[in-house]
């Protein structure tokens, strides 16, 4: 058996013993619905996290109309926004929740680990969404 044939045998074993889980394929398929075509993108301009272990993650995003800073510690997300008011929508790939903005500040609790982004409405009505960023992982 040459190396290519041996690798084919290994590939068959991998497909049998460590296949891509069906849920992973479903989530990947569903990810297309997370496109944010309508919104102005607020890009990540600053990211700071402790290299390892505990401690809050701080993130800063900016778009033409809005700037957002986030501090994420465990499952609590606190944000400060300029250029937008009303509600902030805290989105993860599997959830979204609107929280009120009070004097620029907003807080969401019970935020799942992994990716998160924030949807806002700029003062002139333009929808704005931040890039995806890692909160706690």
């Amino acid at each position: 058996m040459n190396d290519d044939e041996f690798l084919d045998v290994l590939r068959a074993a991998a497909e049998e013993f460590d296949p891509v889980p069906a849920g992973v394929l479903r989530d990947a398929s569903a990810a297309l619905a997370l496109r944010a075509l309508d919104a102005e993108l607020a890009a990540l301009v600053e990211s700071e996290a402790l290299v390892r272990g505990d401690g809050p993650v701080t993130l800063a995003f900016e778009s033409e109309r809005v700037s957002v800073s986030l501090e994420i510690s465990d499952d609590v997300l606190r944000g400060f926004v300029t250029g937008a008011a009303g509600e902030a929508v805290v989105e993860t790939p599997r959830s979204r929740r609107a929280v009120p903005i009070v004097d620029g500040w907003f807080t969401a609790t019970g935020v799942p680990s992994g990716l998160v982004r924030i949807r806002l409405t700029a003062a002139d009505g333009t929808p704005v969404v931040t890039q995806w960023a890692h909160g706690t992982a």
Partner: peptide
Amino acid sequence: WSIARAYRLNDADAADAVQCTWVKLVEHL
């Protein structure tokens, strides 16, 4: 999936890494 497993991620972490990769592709489509 193979990349995530190559880095010895467990089921949940591997699923997370793959999902994050697809979400970022959607963002950069």
